[in-house]
């Protein structure tokens, strides 16, 4: 039987989490959870509604070296935020591809992170920007790199008594962008995407819908500035990083070929 707990304060939330070691389902924007429960995909029955905590965990601010996005900030708020627009236009571009206008007004950044979809639009961009997440529990905070947060398909580096409180994005002078391939602009789920950030001979790469979980393309990054690489070379290199799946939106083979072409075009562009 489904039960929904409704903590009114952070203190109440941690009392619930510390009482029993249980894999609670956190209800934030609800844009993934509500359809998943309806379709029977989501089987967990113990929910915690975070809507009473929304005010405290919403907003964007900066410290000396980072822009910090609180976990329950919606993508609509993210898109309007001046700091994020100024420092991370590639992330703004990616966040505009999430669902449509209605979904963006409800869906939260931490929801996109913990849902851990290989096709999540905001994650490749956040990975190339070297984002970190703050995990909060009654014992305090720990900060973990987003690239270390994913361990397998929907398998996350987070304990049952922790919630995500912040997403920390370090400011940098890297050039970053995001390319998406899909069937239409709004309300579509990405077939494949590529995010990158580079400066001189350093590059960070990440691809969407290319692996069981969002990840950086470390093997490709390492060899990216070698001279005279061919499309065939990238085919071999990329195989170390990704293995896209077949699903209703696309075949794995198609995704792989498109991604290889995107990476190779970028390589040619940056060799100039």
């Amino acid at each position: 039987m489904i039960s929904v707990l409704r903590p009114k304060t952070t203190k109440e939330l941690f009392e619930i989490l510390d009482k029993e070691d249980k894999n609670y389902l956190f209800l934030a924007g609800g844009t993934d959870i509500m359809p998943s429960i309806k379709k029977g995909i989501e089987k967990r029955e113990d929910l915690i509604d975070l809507s009473f905590l929304k005010k405290g965990f919403s907003g964007v601010y900066r410290d000396k070296t980072n822009i910090i996005v609180k976990s329950l900030t919606t993508f609509a708020k993210i898109q309007k935020d001046e700091l994020l627009n100024k420092h991370f236009p590639s992330f703004i571009k990616a966040s505009k591809l999430i669902g449509g206008y209605t979904i963006q007004g409800m869906a939260t950044i931490a929801g996109n992170i913990v849902n851990a979809s290989p096709a999540a639009d905001s994650l490749p961009s956040l990975l190339t920007l070297n984002a970190k997440v703050t995990l909060l529990s009654s014992n305090g905070e720990r900060i973990i790199e987003l690239k270390d947060f994913y361990k397998g398909y929907k398998n996350l580096e987070i304990k049952n008594n922790e919630i995500i409180s912040n997403i920390i994005i370090p400011t940098s002078d890297y050039q970053a962008d995001f390319i998406e391939v899909g069937t239409r602009k709004a309300m579509s789920i990405t077939k494949v995407s590529l995010a990158y950030a580079y400066k001189d001979k350093n590059i960070f790469l990440s691809a969407g819908s290319a692996f069981a979980y969002p990840k950086r393309l470390f093997a490709t990054e390492k060899r990216f500035f070698e001279k005279d690489l061919t499309k065939k070379d990238f085919e071999i290199i990329l195989k170390e990083d990704v293995s896209p799946l077949d699903d209703i939106r696309s075949s794995g083979n198609y995704r792989f070929n498109v991604l290889r072409n995107l990476v190779f075009s970028l390589y040619q562009e940056l060799q100039k």
Binding site: V4, R6, L27, G30, T31, M34, P35, K38, K39, D49, S51, T74, A76, G99, G100, Y101, T102, I103, G105, M106, M187
Partner: peptide
């Protein structure tokens, strides 16, 4: 399931989908 927008309403001034907004 939150895809089509037919159930759009405003909640506290934000466009929201009534089919995926729970009572809680």
């Amino acid at each position: 399931e939150g895809e089509c927008g037919a159930c759009s309403v405003l909640i506290d001034g934000e466009l929201s989908l009534a089919c995926i907004t729970p009572a809680t």
